[in-house]
Design a binder for these strands. Structure first.
Ligand SMILES: [Mn+2]
Ligand SMILES: [Mn+2]
Ligand SMILES: [Mn+2]
Ligand SMILES: [Mn+2]
Lengths: 216, 216
DNA sequence: TTTAATTTTTAGTCTAGTCTAAAAAAATAA
DNA sequence: TTATTTTTTTAGACTAGACTAAAAATTAAA
């Protein structure tokens, strides 16, 4: 399993999460920031190894084996993110790029010991669930903040966008995982929301509300 | 800086430690388990980047810059080894291969935070000194156990051979870093030694004694 | 149901890093 | 000093992974 193969599997895994049916060559190319022709080549290779099912022009789907491999990489990525935040004082907007490297380190023992060392965390610093050794992911029943209505309450449990810029915005506004939130008002015109967190009220755009997960 | 370039620099650094003057193409090839022709190619590349000084047929030497890069990789290698042993319950014979991967992770912040997290250790689990950020290594004045004479005493502070098999042998014999050792007798015929560690006496071959560092 | 636009694949090229085989240089022996 | 052996470099080929340009297949529009 090369680094590149692993990254393709991970991309397909994430895309499968959002769209169902076969994942298109172009979608993968866009996510991987490569060209469609490169994707076709790699897909053939993964297909040879029975990590994906592929028929020309029909898109691609992970096999059971492929799904397991991908989930394992994501498991490593998220555990390392927890490590960086919990043990090495990284902020949640700094961890992703380093985790992109660390997720490719190969050692069963390393990752299982790390898991234990961190106290078997269930979620990473962005609220994303950490798959177990067998690739099982607790399918979270969380909803996007955007879907809440006036006077609804909930707890912030995750973010959809993990980009550094978005996370820094949240920090600035005092929006963090675990905080209680209440929707004070919702503007039908632009779908912006007035919300309350810890007695403080302020307005956020739809774009923001669309990237925050809430547990009701 | 690619992974391969880093590994070549590290190999040259280690070879420079043992031999002085230009390091030969063949020596590098042997250490890297590649062929001499591959080494020549890579050396040209490193020379372009001014990380080594190179004249055809004359061997190679690290530049100041090259030395710094190499020392930094070794710093990372050894800090990760400490982490694995101290925090993740690895044994000292298990850490090297994983550290070979981890040493290539690129993040200034990661390695400095790790250093702090580990309490700024001075040596790795095998007794090797950990270079500081500027590539300075405390040049240890330790001697090989082999060089001790009858009735000499000392403390075990390091190993020269870090292979898993050697380390496991030491574990079995109860030979560990920090232990006091006394030479009871030395056999001139085969240079084997009778030693005492914690009231236990036993005999070791020259090969063993040649791979253990002692502080007198 | 033709035609046009889009998507995907193929064909051919490039770079990094490796290899084998052969040539060139240096070191050693006669 | 010449011949032989060893070391190092060059030449040419291969693989993984990427790219561009062109061809083929599919989808959408007319
Ligand atoms: Mn991430
Ligand atoms: Mn994350
Ligand atoms: Mn090591
Ligand atoms: Mn070591």
């Amino acid at each position: 399993m090369t680094l590149s193969e692993e990254n393709y599997l991970k991309a397909i895994y994430h895309l499968s999460d959002t769209f169902d049916g076969g994942i298109s060559t172009n979608a993968i190319a866009e996510k991987m920031k490569t060209k469609a022709s490169s994707v076709t080549d790699m897909i053939k290779k993964l297909s040879e190894k029975e990590l994906v099912n592929y028929r020309r022009y029909k898109g691609v789907e992970l096999t059971v084996e492929g799904k397991l491999v991908a989930a394992n990489i994501i498991r490593k990525h998220r555990l390392w993110e927890v490590f960086l935040v919990e043990k090495l004082n990284f902020t949640w907007d700094e961890v992703h790029d380093v985790a992109e490297q660390l997720e490719h380190i190969k050692s069963e023992k390393l990752i299982n010991q790390l898991d234990e060392f961190l106290g078997f965390p269930k979620r990473d610093p962005h609220g994303d669930p950490i798959p177990d050794k067998d690739g099982n992911v607790s399918n979270h029943t969380d909803v996007l903040l955007m879907t809440l209505n006036k006077n609804d309450k909930g707890i912030i449990v995750g973010v959809k966008d993990s980009s550094s810029s978005f996370l820094k915005y949240l920090d600035k506004q005092g929006i963090a995982l675990g905080k209680k939130i209440k929707v004070i008002d919702k503007e039908p015109f632009d779908n912006s929301m007035k919300i309350r967190i810890k007695k403080e009220e302020f307005t956020i755009s739809q774009q923001i509300a669309n990237n925050i997960y809430i547990k009701k």
